[in-house]
Design a protein around this nucleic acid. Structure first.
Length: 103
DNA sequence: TTCCTGACTTTAC
DNA sequence: AGTAAAGCCAGGA
């Protein structure tokens, strides 16, 4: 499996708990900042945390979650992030100022 | 094989 | 500063 998806999975898998990364961030890490769209797409096709891919730690550039495509509800994702020690600026906006994934 | 679509990002007006 | 539009890559039909 050398697909781009696998690369994204590995990147997301390296995200430490209590930290969040944006799609573009991961896309850039894999070597293609223009593939940000596919990063999210990979998450959609990802096995989830069961496969070691914490999609809940992947958020928009603004830090907003993915309403409608989350694990069954952005509230659930929010709880998971909060449980990892991630702060929230708004009801659906992660505090990337303090939780942005620093490589 | 070709066309379309897609959890986004960035630049331009 | 805010809104609008285009761009990019890859997978699926």
């Amino acid at each position: 499996m050398d697909s781009f998806f696998e690369q994204v999975y590995e990147m997301v898998r390296q995200i430490p708990s209590g930290r969040v990364a944006s799609y573009g961030q991961i896309a850039r890490l894999v070597g293609s900042p223009r593939k940000a769209r596919f990063v999210g797409f990979a998450m959609h096709a990802s096995p989830g945390m069961a496969g070691g891919v914490p999609c809940h730690r992947v958020v928009f550039k603004d830090g907003s979650l993915a309403p409608g495509f989350a694990f069954g509800g952005p509230d659930v994702q929010k709880e998971m992030l909060l449980g990892e020690g991630i702060s929230f600026k708004d009801e659906s906006h992660v505090d990337m100022d303090a939780c942005s994934w620093e490589v």
